[in-house]
């Protein structure tokens, strides 16, 4: 196995009051891998990724513990100035709402060229050519003319393409995509996911895809990490996790998917709400909502145990093997 391009070990993020929003998160990302980071709203997906970029809103939130190694270099202890050289150049990020994340008064081409000029010291003409090329790469028609457009002249899907072009302009090793398709309609959503997979194939970029849509994960990702209330429930290859989920929460999420509910009946739901960050339950954080609680769930956090090759889960009473089958 090749060395991971990004290795996260025991990452924890705390609020000023010492509440842990992300607790002991670990995962590896191989070159060219697409990892789906799945969880409900508030499960800490976005906070975890902001922590990877060192873009937490300090001092309200801070990295309390852990190691984030990008090609062997620890990012947590890096100075802010060095970290600025990593962002954009090695670690790119795209966001849910491309309209709000593009500068409204700067031409799209200039926004791409700015990143290239800053990080690679390219000349004005070279950067402009690179910007046009980047727009072509993300499938924007007539990129020479479109480079001179402003964000408001683009459609939603094209804005997302433009944002991807900006983030990938300097060929980062890792792209963090924070719900990149949530704000787009279904047909455009498929195009953008297709584009991300193409870029992975062509440029070998590794992608962390944050989503709450297991359908998106099933289509796009190589592996999955499921977060609940800031803790990792289950992590492993897509087929293992979706085909034979071990954690009760993962199994519940899969049952809640409209496509796997099968037929006309009522959609399944997981009863209750995720816990408030200030009132985390003792023991397993999922136990108040879990349908298969055993005594130890109330008192002890479950340890992560191996379930298969590269597949781990943190559950006291895991779903028995082959107890449920899901078509992936």
């Amino acid at each position: 196995m090749t060395d991971p391009v990004l290795s996260v070990q025991g990452l924890s993020v705390e609020t000023r009051d010492g509440v842990r929003l992300v607790d002991d998160l670990s995962f590896d990302l191989a070159p060219g891998e697409i990892l789906g980071l799945v969880g409900e709203s508030g499960s800490g997906k976005t906070v975890a990724c902001r922590a990877l970029m060192r873009l937490l809103p300090e001092p309200a939130l801070r990295i309390a513990d852990g190691r984030v190694a990008l090609m062997g270099q620890d990012l947590v202890t890096l100075s802010e100035a060095r970290m600025r050289g990593i962002r954009g150049r090695q670690l790119g990020m795209i966001f849910q709402n491309p309209t709000a994340h593009l500068d409204p008064v700067m031409r799209i081409g200039d926004q791409i060229a700015e990143a290239v000029r800053l990080h690679e010291g390219a000349s004005r003409t070279d950067a402009r050519a690179r910007a046009v090329e980047a727009l072509r790469q993300v499938g924007i028609p007539d990129p020479e003319a479109r480079a001179g457009s402003y964000a408001h002249e683009f459609s939603g899907g094209m804005r997302q393409r433009a944002m991807i072009a900006i983030a990938l302009a300097c060929n980062p090793k890792v792209l963090i995509a924070d719900e990149p398709t949530t704000a787009l309609d279904v047909t455009v959503q498929a195009q953008i996911l297709r584009l991300l997979m193409d870029l992975r194939d062509r440029q070998g970029v590794s992608i962390i895809l944050i989503t709450h849509d297991l359908g998106v994960v099933a289509q796009t990702c190589d592996s999955i990490a499921v977060l609940y209330a800031g803790r990792l429930c289950e992590r492993g290859p897509k087929r293992g996790v979706l085909g034979a989920p071990a954690h009760r929460y993962t199994a519940g999420l899969i049952r809640c998917q409209p496509t796997s509910a099968g037929g006309e009946g009522m959609l399944d739901t997981i009863e209750g709400q995720p816990p408030a960050v200030s009132a985390m339950p003792k023991g397993c954080r999922f136990h108040p909502r879990c349908g298969a609680v055993i005594a130890v769930c109330n008192t002890h956090q479950p340890e992560q145990t191996a379930r298969g090759p590269g597949h781990i889960a943190a559950c006291h009473n895991p779903v028995a093997d082959a107890a449920m089958t899901v078509s992936v």
């Binding site: 990593i86 954009g88 994340h101 593009l102 500068d103 800053l118 983030a167």
Partner: peptide
Amino acid sequence: ADFVLAARSLGYS
């Protein structure tokens, strides 16, 4: 605004 966060994610000073 979100575009400021996006700019920071590109490593801008």
